[in-house]
Design a binder for these strands. Structure first.
Lengths: 216, 216
DNA sequence: GAGCGCCGGATTGTTGACAATATCGCTGGC
DNA sequence: GCCAGCGATATTGTCAACAATCCGGCGCTC
């Protein structure tokens, strides 16, 4: 990328979008953003183009940029891809895990259990992200990690509503435990299988949402 | 994207890079490209940024763009991802295939067989791409297709050298036949497995290259 | 003769202004 | 009262010029 400030602006705008500060389909007027992020239109445009390449915003000719609205159907497609990629990552993590990694993962699981017990949904959701992230770091698979980051960004909106489905933490906690068990046992195949099972259940939850949404 | 000409320039430049007209690490001087593609620097820059987002070129601050050199290690990572994604796509294709699709796939296989018999390497390589492409179209999985296109673009260079490995077509032809057989039999699991086996063998070939390259 | 610093050309990064286009409200006709 | 056409305004798309930076060659010193 030409400039370094572009990256900073892109990152700031990304977090703003992900935090829901800009709603899907909301127009992103360049001048307003320039003011907010104290950047020139040139820089801002470059940042927008970056985010467009990552699927967070989309351009319409002569109508500028808007926050891209990913449909539930698309979220399902993305999850189907994630199942495979996170499976790969889990397998690699099982091959490469060290003892300090093991301690870290077990600690995370313990905290997740506590969060579920105390019904701290937000905390659980946060730990969930941390766990997946930690496994990705252990795997050290740059290509998969980059793609997963992108895909996850596109579905944050749904991840939130998923975590609100009653009973979701209760079903996903043991799955996470199974994943960590297989990864720490250095069993790539089991790890991949456990991760796939976990995300398959996420996929099922999405499909349920999708059916629920149909007959409004 | 702002303009439509940007997309055209990006596409032209992409094919130029993929065809090897610009070598890895070769500098892409903006003015020269402007002249060649009859575009303003503004447009050209936007196109470059696009290609950078797709991993085909990379920027170095104040030193402009150059063709990105993907290492063999990276090609291996990419293939590991492709194994999973193409597996997903094959499974989906098996679920959705129609009769006319079936005829099309079988025709492609027949041509591949002929190409192998006559030792037409280039033709076989071309048909190979067509087959994978056809399966992707049947699957109609936009998310996976987009990612695969990107990943494939990054590895074209290696795909060429792979097809020159002696005996490669002989081993990959039956694998392709197995994939088509499973997909046309509408058996998603078999299709995914067959595709994975096929790409695993590609991966093995890459690893062999990588070892051969080590002791220079 | 080798190394170091300086200068000039080449190339990229950035800006502000201008042109093109869409959006929206207004006016007038029916 | 409503719709079509039209003009004003807001916004984006593009450009050409300017500033910043890097690269290579030159001379100077030791």
């Amino acid at each position: 990328m030409p400039t370094d400030s572009k990256a900073a602006v892109a990152q700031a705008l990304r977090t703003a979008i992900l935090s829901g500060e800009y709603a899907p389909n909301q127009r992103l007027v360049e001048i307003d953003l320039c003011e907010r992020f104290a950047a020139s239109r040139f820089i801002l445009r470059a940042a927008l183009q970056d985010l467009a390449a990552q699927g967070l915003v989309e351009f319409q000719r002569n109508r500028g940029a808007r926050v891209r609205d990913v449909s539930l159907a698309e979220a399902i497609e993305i999850t189907e891809v994630r199942i495979r990629l996170e499976g790969l990552v889990a397998a690699r993590a099982a091959e490469r895990i060290t003892m300090s990694d093991t301690a870290n993962l077990r600690h995370l699981v313990k905290e997740m259990r506590a969060a579920v017990e105390h019904s701290e949904l937000l905390r659980y959701s946060e730990l969930n992200a941390q766990l997946h992230c930690a496994i990705q770091e252990i795997a050290a698979h740059e290509t998969a990690a980059r793609l997963l980051r992108q895909l996850r960004d596109q579905t944050v909106r749904y991840q939130f509503s998923l975590s609100l489905v009653p009973g979701r933490p209760a079903t996903s906690l043991p799955q996470h435990e199974a994943i960590v068990a297989a990864v720490t046992a250095k069993d790539p195949e089991q790890a991949e299988a456990a991760m796939r099972r976990h995300l398959e259940s996420v996929l099922t939850a999405y499909r349920a949402l999708s059916i629920a949404a149909l007959p409004r």
